[in-house]
């Protein structure tokens, strides 16, 4: 994997380390990154995007503790051998969590009852 595959938006309300983890999750779930693929070094990512190296370390550490990445001695970080592109339904659902939470927040702001929102969502999903 190359550092240029990541997109960093410094002005986003989402901290940069979370942006990196989120992209790794999606790249792995989508199969663009496979088990054993090497990740760019912290230095390479920090240099390419001109971001603080501690931010990159934090993202890698978080992805490692989630089981997405593993540290290979002498080679750096790699996609964990146990990771498969076809994840379980629960894992794929977890990727939707931020959008679902945003939906809940908007619904509350608009003071919409839950059943009305669920009915509409159900119809959209059936289409």
């Amino acid at each position: 994997m190359d550092a240029s595959l990541l997109t960093i938006q410094p002005a986003s309300p989402e901290p940069i380390y979370r942006q990196i983890v989120e992209q790794l999750r999606r790249l792995i779930a989508g199969g663009q990154l496979g088990a054993g693929d090497l990740l760019p070094s912290v230095r390479d990512v920090a240099a390419f995007h001109a971001i603080n190296p501690m931010t990159v370390s934090r993202a890698y550490g978080m992805a490692e503790s989630e089981g997405l990445l593993e540290r290979l001695r002498g080679k750096g970080m790699a996609v964990a051998a146990t990771v498969r592109p076809t994840q379980t339904q629960t894992q794929r659902l977890a990727l939707l969590e931020p959008q679902l939470q945003a939906l809940v927040r908007h619904a509350r702001e608009l003071e919409l009852p839950a059943d009305a929102v669920l009915r509409r969502l159900g119809r959209l999903l059936e289409d």
């Binding site: 240099a47 001109a50 603080n52 190296p53 501690m54």
Partner: peptide
Amino acid sequence: RRELLREIALRACE
């Protein structure tokens, strides 16, 4: 500017 930021990032790292 980007080059300066990169320099800062790398030196903080190394």
